[in-house]
Design a protein around this nucleic acid. Structure first.
Lengths: 118, 118
DNA sequence: TCGTCATATCATCAATCAATGATATAATGC
DNA sequence: GCATTATATCATTGATTGATGATATGACGA
């Protein structure tokens, strides 16, 4: 059984991870790893729709994963902290090493450029 | 725009994070951080129902976050890798430091020496 | 073999979530 | 002011997900 404070911690942690748990948000985060971008740039980088991006960005902001800054009519977004980058990095390592099973589950056979390019 | 292989990587990463993105699963993982436990012990540690736990455990196993080992009629579960622990650790640090906003969103009123200033 | 304990699975229902298209706001330049 | 561009918000819809209770499986001891 959990104390209220522990429960709250769990909820926060879950919320944090939920920020990472969607491919659209992940691709936004990946785009932002390199540099801050405005929304239009993110749209172009990810190929997702503007409203979709905008929705996810506000989710990411709520989760504390990104910060935004207004410049004229552009809104620039960046990762809120280096540790966000570290988390993504660590996840990659875990994936490539530990979760071979996950890879196998969804193994693909892509010659190259197969599957419609989107 | 993403290549197919990048898209797959994103999906795997999202799947990995999804394992962490639910309070029930997180409390299971937290329980397992200290030591391997069987299902009944996890049920007692978390206060969740047996079938709920069992469902989440199979999800966690599929995601590669935990491994199971049969011993008689008990099934013991443990974290599949130290980096799972590191991820949880890092998430805690990010939370306590970066995501003050998240804390504020859900501020609670713990009497003793809880909140840092601001 | 029978009864019991430990765990897994299944079906169902409710809740949450993501994508979309339409529209709103707000800054800019003419 | 008006048109344009950049971004945010909203409502709707479909999909995914989590909790639950019931039941199934499988190991163990009597």
């Amino acid at each position: 059984m959990l104390l209220a404070s522990e429960k709250l911690e769990l909820e926060l942690k879950a919320k944090l991870f939920r920020g990472f748990s969607d491919t659209s948000r992940l691709s936004i985060l990946e785009a932002l790893r390199a540099q801050p971008l405005n929304v239009g740039e993110i749209v172009r980088a990810t190929g997702l729709s503007q409203s979709n991006i905008s929705n996810h960005l506000s989710c990411l902001r709520d989760c504390g994963l990104v910060m935004s800054e207004q410049r004229g009519r552009y809104t620039y977004y960046r990762l809120s902290d280096d540790r966000i980058d570290s988390l993504l990095q660590l996840a990659e390592e875990v994936l490539s090493d530990v979760a071979k099973g996950v890879y196998q589950c969804t193994r693909y056979d892509i010659p190259e450029g197969a599957s419609n390019g989107e």
